[in-house]
């Protein structure tokens, strides 16, 4: 029987370089796709179906999401990894429920934001992307939104890192800002891949802008700017409430929470 060392080596940076590269490539792929879509082909969609833009939108965003997952997932500690399925089920369950109400909200990111607050931006981004990919097992139409979901997780993690979850009233503000960015990034997907949105509430808003003569992308972007910030503000607030309800022993298990004092006022300064 082989004699394994009983201890782990001190955390080193050597093996992480490749992972970092994958993360950067993933982010770059998402950013480049978005810029290309917005700058190069804004009017393409309604003159014919514009399958080239669809392919680009799908390919670029999905590739980015997959690179992010491959880069982040193996570096996550198991304690964070096991939370991801929990987050996914919360996302999917609440998202499905909200989808049936007809309100112009999604509520499909509570789990993602929860992970981001506890484990940081990288874990949040991976959770968001994975959430879309695994949800697509039951609903393939969410697959193209993987990049947007990753962005939400990343931004929620950044908000937590810079202290926006220390006070309850700051969380919805961070959510509002995240919603603006996420909405603008996701709108091209709705426009180029689906030619619209599938919810009754969101559909009505898009129709109103179209009736005023907007292009499809513009109408969907405006709709996203109405729905997403509100939606994310609520989602961030709910996530904050849930995190505040957690016992200290549960939250302090996460190094990210301890290191950046994510939930200040909830606990005495922990000796590291």
């Amino acid at each position: 029987m082989s004699q394994q060392s009983l201890t782990l080596p001190a955390p080193g940076a050597a093996a992480d370089k490749k992972r970092r590269l994958l993360e950067l490539l993933g982010a770059a792929s998402i950013a480049a796709t978005f810029i290309f879509l917005v700058l190069a082909q804004p009017s393409d969609i309604t003159n014919g179906v514009g399958s080239a833009s669809t392919l680009l939108a799908l390919g670029g965003f999905l590739l980015g999401a997959i690179l992010l997952i491959l880069g982040v997932l193996p570096t996550l500690p198991t304690s964070t990894l096991v939370l991801i399925p929990v987050a996914l089920v919360l996302n999917i369950a609440l998202g499905q429920i909200m989808g049936t109400t007809g309100l112009p909200f999604y509520f499909d990111a509570i789990g993602t934001v929860l992970i981001a607050v506890l484990a940081g931006p990288a874990a949040g981004a991976a959770t968001g992307a994975l959430s879309s990919i695994i949800w697509s097992f039951f609903n393939p139409t969410v697959l193209p939104f993987a990049a947007g979901a990753a962005l939400i997780g990343f931004l929620a993690g950044m908000a937590a890192r810079y202290g926006l979850f220390r006070r309850f009233y700051l969380a919805p503000v961070a959510g509002f800002a995240t919603g603006i960015i996420a909405g603008v990034v996701s709108a091209p997907i709705a426009a180029f891949v689906f030619g619209g949105t599938s919810g009754a509430g969101t559909g009505a808003i898009v129709s109103a802008f179209r009736a005023m003569g907007d292009t499809l992308l513009a109408a969907i972007t405006k709709q996203a700017l109405i729905s997403d910030p509100m939606d994310k503000a609520i989602v961030f607030a709910i996530a904050a409430l849930l995190v505040y309800a957690l016992p200290r022993r549960a939250t302090f298990r996460f190094p990210f929470v301890r290191r950046f004092n994510v939930l200040a006022g909830k606990a005495p300064v922990a000796a590291s």
Binding site: T141, G196, S198, G199
Partner: peptide
């Protein structure tokens, strides 16, 4: 069953949106 849940709202939304409001 699974696709009906996804596709019926989508078709409804597409038909209303583009069927009624298509400035082009």
């Amino acid at each position: 069953a699974a696709s009906a849940v996804i596709l019926l709202p989508l078709w409804f939304s597409l038909l209303v949106l583009h069927g009624l409001f298509f400035p082009e």
